[in-house]
Write a protein that binds this DNA or RNA. Sequence first.
DNA 1: CAGTGTTGTCTGTTATAACAAACACCATTG
DNA 2: CAATGGTGTTTGTTATAACAGACAACACTG
Lengths: 230, 230
Amino acid sequence: MPELASPERVETLSDQVYAELRKAVLAGAFVPGQRMTIRGLAAEMKVSATPAREALNRLVAEGGLEYGPGKTVRVPAITAAKLDEIYLVRVPLEGTAAELGAARLGSRGIAKLEAFVERHAAALDRGDFRASLRENQGFHFTLYGAAERPLLMQVVEAMWLRIGPMMHLLYPTFEANRSGLRNHLAAIEAVRAGDGAALRRIVEKDLLEGRATMLRALAGQAPGNLGDAA
Amino acid sequence: MPELASPERVETLSDQVYAELRKAVLAGAFVPGQRMTIRGLAAEMKVSATPAREALNRLVAEGGLEYGPGKTVRVPAITAAKLDEIYLVRVPLEGTAAELGAARLGSRGIAKLEAFVERHAAALDRGDFRASLRENQGFHFTLYGAAERPLLMQVVEAMWLRIGPMMHLLYPTFEANRSGLRNHLAAIEAVRAGDGAALRRIVEKDLLEGRATMLRALAGQAPGNLGDAA
DNA sequence: CAGTGTTGTCTGTTATAACAAACACCATTG
DNA sequence: CAATGGTGTTTGTTATAACAGACAACACTG
């Protein structure tokens, strides 16, 4: 037996299209209201309609995309109510994930968190917004991932997927990002101190500040909202 | 214009198969470890492979089914760790949903809850286990649904979907169901009193008692577990 | 009798074609 | 010039066929 590599797990075309699409949504690559077509996606990814359709439907089932009028698929529009609801779920779950994760992060894990904070700061310094989002995301997911609770993680990721398209709202607000950075530093301190309750409070604060920033941006610059509110 | 009926919302075959399958999983109609094939489902529902495959994949994306070795689809197996994780999510979210729902239930809503409790009791009295599960589910979903938070509801439903296949574990334990009934009565009292905090505590108690019952049943009668733990 | 190779069936995957509905555009008509 | 009709294109939906891999059974061979 020359190779021990995974005997299962064949990456199907559907999986690849889905993964690509998901990554794009998570990174905020699409603007809310944007319509996506099966054949359009298929052509772009050089596959037939079947895998494209499947990837689209899978993402809709997960909540990253939604059905518009008829059966067109589009990037969900933003409303304050939806944003509130997302945080209604995020706050308790990510608080829990952080607490559980902190207990399992070794010094190795803490070092990874510090590296994320460092790159996050650097990205902000050079004004690279996309990179700062990526590092922010990496920090959170590393912390939560240490909890090794796949279901919890899956639900949290589903929430981030919905937040993705809202990210473009934050482009102008670098101060909020700076504040997030400070929260991350405080979180690392709490992890070091082994103070789970404090960590939860800090994570909640971090999330709620982000929520406030988004709500402000939403109220400010989106009187004519993109996409339908349905 | 002779008819004002919904001009959108065409129920596709995929939707129908999906809805049917989802209902079955939620009702605990499948035993964990059971394998399902695309063509088998297609034949049973008298459709071609395409809608069957789509329904299956949609349910997998939602977490109600899972991929086994290769790419076979099966009903997820039960482990204590998974059960714990489900409740890690359920407890805070359903507590929140209950609190929000209670504030919006009118006397009309309270009457509906009472009706569920009454039918629940009747089902237990005549030993109709399936009906008792249905009434229990109806009680919870009515309470949560009043909150009118579709996203919160969606996440909660996804959790119930995973619990569905475990329901058969509870067949013998009618006492636990009786206890659940008492919790529901207490919940109605808390709703009447407008005491959200108390309601949350009662809901949490209800859930954790159910969790304990399931863990006990799992430890007792499943040394040789069905399906793979993967 | 044990082992091995072959074959047939069943699996999911993917591309494709036929279909109906929705939509937009454009020409024709009032 | 405005309204209306038709037409062609694009949409998602579904069935189907071709395909490759997995698996089991069975027969053949040692």
